[in-house]
Design a protein around this nucleic acid. Sequence first.
DNA 1: TGCAATGCAATACGGGTGCAATGTAACCCG
DNA 2: CGGGTTACATTGCACCCGTATTGCATTGCA
Lengths: 191, 191
Amino acid sequence: MPRRVDHRERRELLADALMRLAAARGLEGVSLRQVAAEAGVSTGMVQHYFRTKDEMMTFALAMVMDRVRERSGAELTSTAPRELVRGLLCQVLPLDETRRLENHVVLAFLAYAAVKPSIAAGLREAAAQTRTFLAEQLRAAGPPAGVDPDRAAAGLLALVDGLGLQLLSSQYTEEAALAALDAQLTLLFGA
Amino acid sequence: MPRRVDHRERRELLADALMRLAAARGLEGVSLRQVAAEAGVSTGMVQHYFRTKDEMMTFALAMVMDRVRERSGAELTSTAPRELVRGLLCQVLPLDETRRLENHVVLAFLAYAAVKPSIAAGLREAAAQTRTFLAEQLRAAGPPAGVDPDRAAAGLLALVDGLGLQLLSSQYTEEAALAALDAQLTLLFGA
DNA sequence: TGCAATGCAATACGGGTGCAATGTAACCCG
DNA sequence: CGGGTTACATTGCACCCGTATTGCATTGCA
């Protein structure tokens, strides 16, 4: 049995189980044993691949953000700035089951990160990256008078974060969220 | 000693301790014993005032939201819609230590509520209330063409939520957040 | 003046937690 | 064809959790 295993693959298998748990029962429902059970393996195996629970958590979060980044990268085919921006932001919104799950995880980790700065760092960097990209696109599109691209980018990201938050707690529908996003894009890119 | 105690007051004392813990160590750091220790009382006393942990949590969240609502109500003196809206939204943003604490708590509960619907209900109702108020004010101010008050209100609330989120994880400064908010208000209310 | 209700404190219980230690198969390498 | 390393599985430990139970003052009320 041994030696011939892909470490990466195993860790992702476990991290996937963790995500499912986090989405279903919250981060506090995540324990070594629960993750093991969800993945259908022994707790010893989990310990084998993650020396500590914190290491497991950190890996899972990194994995989620990598996936979002990957999907966003794949979306960068359109040439019109507005569609590009919209496509990217839609990859973040919880509009299907996969992304709902991801958003749950990220939200759980956000609450966690407000306390543990080491976790927050990764999130912060990813956001900054997205923000500068958005600002570039806004600048390229030549926004209406009175719209500062940097500020607008920051606002746009905050808007999407907020929309995601409200979608998760089912405060309203996907259509409403998309409408709000589109309305904002229209304001920023002009009619 | 007994009989002459204000139940409400005791419960708020405990809920305050809970808030401090939640802000400092996250919701998962909140236990009956920890709350008791933080409040400087026995765990028995906590049990006396909250029959279950869930009851304690629910009460604490309700208390926080009541305080926000109270503060927001006190802010409703200005007559110009834009200033009114701005004042209200600023009461939600984490711009001082008190509100940072509150935001931490609400965020923690949001992650919790994504899993426990009974908690989510209260949050949803409060948000809906705020949203209709915002929409009223926008309508009263006569927004520029192409701005739908209801959608704009929803967007505004989402924006503030997102800004709060990013402020908490110190993704940027208070000034930047306020600037983003003001920029959006200018877009919605016109110059 | 009794007596029930109230406000708490202390303790105990069953269960879940992270983690360390140990065991044991399977494979690769020399 | 041994020895060492890898990949797990099992078990145990100390701790913390939420909750139930019990005990005991103190008080308002009859």
